[in-house]
Design a protein around this nucleic acid. Structure first.
Lengths: 229, 229
DNA sequence: AGCGATCATCTGATATAACGTATAACCTGC
DNA sequence: GCAGGTTATACGTTATATCAGATGATCGCT
């Protein structure tokens, strides 16, 4: 086989309609474009994406299986809602998983990854200044997972993504407040310093602080709008 | 609403053909009834369960989305295979997740749960003596998850299940050896002692030892049969 | 006016058919 | 005998039709 042929990757599954629908919904969830508790009917998704019921249904229930959406008693699918117990549970899981990923990534990050993280953090700061919270959310995701993927633990990455997806619908709720506080930016600065020094303990500490900070703001936002529970 | 009506649970999704197929495949995977790498075609599953392609397909791809099965380039679905890197990754994840669950469960287990765990451990010992490894696998699952569910962290439970499912196909590979060694039984005895004393640290330690022991045997079994990679 | 029943509509579940692609057996030419 | 192409079969993907259950509104009765 030629060198050029070795470079090209095998076709991924998301070239199918169901796969594309899955990706589309996934990024929409992460971007917080659905309200917590919002009901997603098969037919509405099919109509919105201009596909038939079969791939729309497959995308929805795959997201349910992933834990990104929830299914009601009669097969209806909605965006998950979070109460405080669920938030503390997810937070504790994130501390365990992302702590592990952080320790490992600190040892394995190469210069390109460190530079990417630094650049993404700058983008977050800029977007936050412009109050472009959609960009903040997107770059924050990229920032964290650019680090985590350096741990070379794909199963772990999928589980961390699952945690993030569960809280995705609430991100728009917290970001105005997140931006106002300086703590979020300080935590990210500490993360960048830790990866520059390739210090596993410092990185885990900084990541933990970031997670706990986000959890506090999220809990406060939910207490403020209890109808979203 | 009456007290009695609050007790009854809403209909679960597995009353549908797709849900039942999902459960059926899931328990088959856990029981190690499929070989690692075995290909599961939609039509074969549909024929075996005497259902049409639609629910069979849904069950298969939901298991893929859960991480219990893997999908190849052209949409084919197979039982996951594990190399040593994957085993160490899953082991490290399990240590993090099940360690968290163990610490929490130790504080929350009531007498009924402790009694159940003791009873399940006895069943494991008996089944092991009879060399009924299918029963050992089943009771081992029940033993661990009877403990973990006491942590009241449903998201965490699903993630731990996902880890167990990934290694399910290899369980038959390791159990003859697992039974021969006394270490497995010793670890379980330590687990039972720790939950009787409701000691979080001791329980986490014992669980960790059990996980690491299982990982060692699994890695050895895979090294012995490299064609299964 | 309040309650309950009936009916229309919405929605999910499943089967089936049609389509395109991969896989592999076979066949041909060298 | 072997390489390369061809064809048939198997398989995944998608759309559509049909059915059943849930939902909600309207109408009638008390």
């Amino acid at each position: 086989m030629s060198k050029a042929l070795q470079r090209i990757r095998p076709l991924e599954r998301n070239e199918t309609l169901a796969g594309r629908a899955h990706d589309e919904l996934r990024t929409a969830i992460m971007a917080g474009r659905f309200r917590p508790g919002e009901k997603l009917t098969i037919r509405a998704v099919a109509a919105a994406l201009e596909i038939s019921l079969t791939p729309a249904r497959e995308a929805l229930f795959n997201l349910v299986a992933e834990g990104a959406l929830e299914s009601g008693p009669n097969g209806s699918v909605h965006v998950p809602t979070l109460d405080e117990a669920r938030i503390t549970e997810i937070t504790r899981i994130r501390l365990a998983l992302e702590g592990l990923a952080a320790r490992e990534a600190a040892l394995l990050m190469d210069d390109a990854a460190i530079e990417d993280a630094r650049r993404l953090n700058d983008l977050i700061i800029k977007a936050n200044r412009k109050q472009d919270y959609a960009a903040v959310i997107r770059h924050n995701w990229q920032f964290h997972f650019r680090i985590y993927e350096c741990a070379r633990m794909p199963v772990l990455v999928r589980m961390m993504e699952s945690c993030w997806l569960k809280t995705g619908a609430y991100l728009n709720l917290i970001y105005p407040e997140f931006g106002r506080s300086e703590d979020g930016l300080r935590n990210h600065a500490a993360i960048v310093r830790a990866i520059e020094r390739r210090d596993p303990v410092a990185l885990e500490t900084a990541i933990r602080r970031d997670i706990e900070f986000a959890a506090r703001i999220l809990a406060k936002a939910i207490r403020a709008e209890p109808e979203l529970q």
